[in-house]
Design a protein around this nucleic acid. Structure first.
Lengths: 140, 140
DNA sequence: CCTTGACCTCAAGCCAGCTTCAAGTTGCAG
DNA sequence: CTGCAACTTGAAGCTGGCTTGAGGTCAAGG
């Protein structure tokens, strides 16, 4: 069992954030030692998972739907698969962007928006953009 | 040349957002027809690029540093490469998360945090987390 | 020529995700 | 037993990325 100080030290996540996550129902403290919250060791994995989800562009609410407060994946397997599919889509876009950036860093063309190579890479991604309208919520 | 109405129609980006982007210096309107802003056709590619950058987790400011208001990639090739590297890192994490989710959707294990497969996948990503502290700014 | 409606500006507002602050406990060192 | 550092709560504040609203202006149609 880890007290909040220990969790902060080991995870790098600020105490204020831990309290915020708990309030939102993303994590659970298993008790108190005096005032201090006590967490199960698994909290560290959970926090990593949350950070991962955030990096993936999921909102805290979405993450809450994917994993329960104990850190277990949602029983709704279809929802999980759907999220995986979303990620696949995002990954495709990011890969195209990465390639585009790398190309731009090398290619000596005067105007990149007219460089066929660059445009082609970027289009891979933007072509999928429309399909992805559903993701309205997140990246604001 | 496209007037703002046309840009909205073709890009799906709201007029308010276009004005906001212009104010931020991300895009440039090439003139006015009466009050209405006029844009060069390239604006559509630029907007796709911006959307792509946002989906990649970059802030508008970062995007502004990568591409000038005309949509051309920054002359700072090192900066572009650095962004590409960041993306590589992000992509690795997202791939791990995607695999983790797909696994969780299939695996009948009682507790996933104790499923070796699941943990291993998630660790790939969280191991890199510390390295990536630099990215403090982004994902609000 | 005058209405209408789509654009304009500028300021204020909204939401997510935190952080900060004031004021109140509490375990532990001395 | 006292002090105090480190925690607590609840509310308010902040930032990024837009959106909304009030009030103004133009050009095109009737």
């Amino acid at each position: 069992m880890l007290d909040i100080t220990e969790v902060v030290r080991r995870s790098g996540v600020p105490a204020s954030t831990l309290r915020y996550y708990e309030e939102k129902g993303l994590i659970l403290s298993t008790g108190r030692r005096g005032l201090k919250r006590i967490f199960a060791p698994g909290i560290l994995d959970q926090l990593a998972l949350i950070a991962l989800g955030r990096a993936a562009g999921f909102s805290l609410d979405e993450i809450g739907e994917m994993f329960d407060a104990g850190g277990e994946p949602s029983i709704d397997r279809d929802a999980l698969s759907a999220k995986a599919d979303e990620l696949d889509d995002t990954i495709r876009k990011l890969s195209a962007m990465r390639d585009g950036l790398r190309h731009a860093a090398k290619c000596p063309a005067p105007s990149h928006l007219e460089c066929g190579q660059f445009r082609r890479l970027m289009n891979i991604a933007s072509a999928r953009m429309k399909v992805e309208k559903k993701r309205g919520g997140q990246e604001r």
